[in-house]
Amino acid sequence: MTELNPYIPFLSKITEVIKHTEIEFTFRMTYSGDVKPGQFFEVSLPKFGEAPISVSGIGDGTVDLTIRKVGKVTDEIFENYVGDTLFLRGPYGNGFDIANYKGKEILLVAGGTGLSPVKGIVDYFSAHPEDCKGFTLLVGFKSPKDMLFKKDFEIWKKNINVIMTVDYPDEHYDGNCGLVTQYIPELMIKGLTDAVGIVVGPPIMMKCTINDLLAKGFKEENLWISQERKMCCGIGKCGHCKIDDTYICLDGPVFNYTKGKFLKD
């Protein structure tokens, strides 16, 4: 039997497009295989290339891919493919294992589009708050205009503790301002020895947040991060995402901090 060619993508239908901002849309795609939050698909646009996009929601026969318009491929998705189909490869990567967090007190800190790969975790515990000892979502966006998943936030707020902040407020905004790290000291964490911290966002945000969580008393082995790197294949061949002896596409993108702290590009 010939093995399946892993480079040839399959066609997936766009069932819904959720527009968060001018440049960030969630594409709800038909997909019926196993998939975990934090895994990613290579969204494949013939003529333009591929972009690794993390799974931002898992439905019945669908996956959500939240795409930010930042390059050749994603520009084209926004221009021409809305309401049609997309080619996909994946899912790739290890993803977040919800089981690791069940029964624990969870602090999830996300910056901007870093919320996408962890949104599945938020969705899960928002739907099953009894599965953990407490769930705090601390999320920062650049400005009110950059907010993602606004409708989801309305649901989450009912079930879990949500702290949202923006770096640059506008005149209509009356919520929290400043970096996510400003809100860490005031967080009431009951049992720091086994509380879980999940941190995803831009490299500098992750670094500062992790430092603050460690200072607050979180244990390294209870901290989880997700890394983003250039990837051309997603299957351990192209080499671009390798850091030290680790292939982000195979061994990550989700890492326990005890491993993640040694990932030096």
Binding site: Y7, L45, P46, K47, F48, G49, E50, C232, C233, K237, C238, G239, H240
Partner: peptide, 18 residues
């Protein structure tokens, strides 16, 4: 290591190769 390239044929912009 390798990098992917998508190209389209200049005489038929709808067809191409990766």
């Amino acid at each position: 290591c390798f990098t992917m390239q998508d190209i389209f044929y200049t005489d038929n912009g709808k067809a191409g190769e990766r």
